[in-house]
Design a protein around this nucleic acid. Structure first.
Lengths: 139, 139
DNA sequence: GCTGAATGTTTGAGCCAGCAAGTATTTATC
DNA sequence: GATAAATACTTGCTGGCTCAAACATTCAGC
């Protein structure tokens, strides 16, 4: 069985991601948001005009369409984000990052990146570069 | 903000893992088991005498103790696995891989490893080695 | 050898996500 | 320009996992 190495790598990646996700969740809990919510805020922050269609959000965050709907509901209530209808296409409802949401994101980003740095600290500079290349190749 | 690179790496890893997990789930669905169940079978298969304490299983698979209990219940019913009480310590209930479970695992392992190989195919040999080193360093 | 802490497991309640089905709107075909 | 297919989104239902609490058993200190 020659492809056992690949199987072990995939298992290792799963374990690693599990660990990372828990740490990042802890880091973000201080800001009252989950990792998934952070991903949404990040996408919106990077999007043109801080607004996006829900379906693109779903794609970029790796969620289903219904997952986005349910995730966004509380975020709208809290005011991190608000809806906006599209004049051109009445099917789509755009999601817009609010100022409050942008502020929370910026605070959370500091924590997130700091935690990420701590997690990846065991890697040397060239290992980190290699990892970036690997992710790019596999995504 | 110099640690942005690390944050992006962590986000990239999350996306990658998301993709991998879905592919592996599809590969395993032919055998009627989930990725988590596969992980359990794998651990049991590798364990001495094909048996393990539930708590060690939880640790190795990255689940909570209650998660293991709930995951195992259907697997016991189907006969992939069975309980066994520990004579030395009446608190623990050992999980034992059944012959049927071992058979299913061996079949599933082929699919799993094959899918893993396909996923990692874009990587060169030395990238794959680098990834193994990175995972080891970070776990 | 008794009492309190620690350990292993199960159970109840709740959250988060997915799938399938339903609604509304737009696009394509004829 | 009517009909069918495709697209964007929401909702009902369900599964999987967690946390906190309960319970049973063992271990440690006196």
């Amino acid at each position: 069985m020659l492809n056992k190495a690949e199987g072990d790598l995939v298992m290792g990646l799963a374990n690693l991601q599990n660990k990372i996700q828990k740490r990042q969740a802890a880091a973000l809990s201080a800001h009252g948001i989950s990792v998934t919510e952070y991903m949404v805020l990040l996408q919106l922050h990077r999007a043109a005009n801080h607004r996006m269609r829900r379906i693109d959000l779903a794609d970029n965050v790796g969620l289903s369409a219904s997952g986005v709907t349910r995730l966004l509901n509380p975020m709208v209530k809290i005011g991190l984000v608000h809806k906006e209808e599209n004049v051109r296409d009445a099917r789509v409802s755009l999601v817009v990052l609010s100022d409050a949401g942008a502020q929370i994101f910026q605070d959370a980003e500091v924590s997130f990146n700091h935690a990420a740095q701590a997690l990846l600290a065991p890697l040397g500079a060239e290992q980190q570069g290699a990892l970036a290349g690997i992710i790019k190749a596999l995504l």
